[in-house]
Each structure stands twice: as C-alpha cells, then as structure tokens.
Amino acid sequence: MTQRSFEQFFKNPRTWKEDLVAVGGDFSVDRLLYAYKHGIFPWSEDPVRWYCLDPRAIFDLKRVHFSKTVLRKVKQNKFRISFNEAFPIVMQGCSYREKDNTWITPGFIQGYAELHRLGWAHSVEVWNLENVLVGGVYGVAIGKFFAGESMFSFESDAGKIGLYHLFDKLKQSGFTLFDTQQLNHVTWQLGAYEIPKLSYLDRLERALGDGRPWVIPTSLG
C-alpha cells in the first residue's frame, strides 16, 4: 500500500477523538511501520484493531526505578543476557497466560518476526545458568523511539532484569522516548507515567528523527 492508502485507512490521531483509529488490515511491515511512526499500535488479530491511546504511558529513561532486589540480581550476574538471539521465542514467552487470553496471537508473532528480520524489532533474552530462557522483552525501535511491547518472567524478576539491560542499551544509544502504551501495576512501579496523546505525538515526531533502524551497542553495561 502507498502512504496515501495508509492515510485513508487510519484515522488521524491528532484529530480523531477515539482511542480506536482503524479496524482491519494486516501485520505487514509497511503497515506496522506507518502505524508506529504515527503513534498507533495493534491490539488484536481477528479483526486487527489499531489504537492510539489518550492518555499515553511512557518511561523517562533517566528516571526508571528498579527495586533493590532486581539491582542485586543484576550485579550477581546469575543470568546471561543476549539481544536478538531468540526473538520469536521471546514473543511466545510473552504470549503465555495461565488464565487470561493473550493478544499475542500467531499473526502478531509472524508479523513482528518479519519486522525483526528487517531490523526494526528487537528482543532481550535472559538465560539461567542451565542456558534455559527464563525471561525476555521485545519491542520496536525507530530512530530514537522505542515501543516496548511486552515482557515475561519464568523465574522471579527475570523480565525486569531484561528490561534493565534494555534501558541501559537505549540510554547508551541516546533514545529519547520509550512508549509503554498503557499503565499497569508493574510499569507504574518502575516509574512509567501518563501524558496527553498530543504531547506524546509531539515527542514521537521529535524522537523518530531520521527514522533509521537501531544498531545495538555491543558492550554490556
């Protein structure tokens, strides 16, 4: 589809008053990139529903609050941290729910795996001493903007440890906006907060910059 086609498909978040801005379409790379560049993200597959929330939850990368327990586990180096080693498996881990239905359905995994293959989506993996994946985080990076999609923990705090290392890399790379979409108990404890949609869209426009994919720094810490 062309830029004009996407403009016709999605409501303009700057003028549209509702959170839901489109229904339908697919998880093609071009559609996903257009959506993220305009503050829009998908939240279901059948049908695909696209949202731009007001208010919007974000992190200030300089004011993230990790508990003493998490920071102690980071310093103990009991986990191996990797980037982009197991992207689809991280998404599958994030999709696991004991009771509730997940929004990370097969179409999401297929679409975002293609984003990952082309360098736009990234994962952080947390492995235990037996080299078993026990936690992870994934999201989309464009310019100096990162959209955090989901994280999981199969061992206590493993997802937060992955998030700690993700934040560290983003700060090394000079990122200016981390979108976490909607507040929940975990993100609130970590320091996420809400801003008006129009303020978010202004920050997003500045953070996108040249719109290049993220090249992750190779050094840890």
Rank of each mutant, 00 (worst) to 15 (best):
R4M: 11
R4L: 10
F6Y: 15
F6A: 14
F9G: 02
T15D: 06
D26Q: 03
L32T: 11
L32N: 08
L32P: 10
G39A: 15
G39S: 10
F41S: 11
W43I: 06
D46G: 05
D46Q: 12
P47V: 06
V48C: 13
L53N: 05
R56Q: 08
I58S: 05
K68T: 15
V74H: 08
K78T: 02
K78S: 03
F79M: 01
R80P: 00
S82F: 04
E85I: 07
A86M: 04
V90P: 10
C94Y: 00
Y96Q: 06
Y96S: 03
R97T: 03
R97M: 06
N101E: 14
T105D: 15
G107Y: 07
F108Y: 12
I109K: 00
Q110K: 13
Y112R: 01
L115P: 09
H116F: 12
R117H: 14
L118D: 13
E125A: 04
W127L: 03
E130M: 07
Y138T: 09
I142M: 04
I142E: 06
G143E: 02
F146V: 05
G148K: 12
S150A: 12
M151W: 11
E155A: 03
S156Y: 01
A158N: 07
I161Q: 00
I161R: 00
G162A: 05
G162V: 03
K169R: 12
Q172F: 07
L177C: 02
F178P: 08
T180P: 05
L183Q: 09
H185S: 15
H185I: 10
W188D: 09
E194P: 10
P196Q: 13
L198P: 05
L201Q: 10
L204N: 03
R206C: 14
L208T: 12
G209Y: 04
D210C: 15
D210E: 15
P213N: 01
W214M: 13
I216Y: 01
P217W: 04
T218N: 13
L220R: 01
G221S: 14
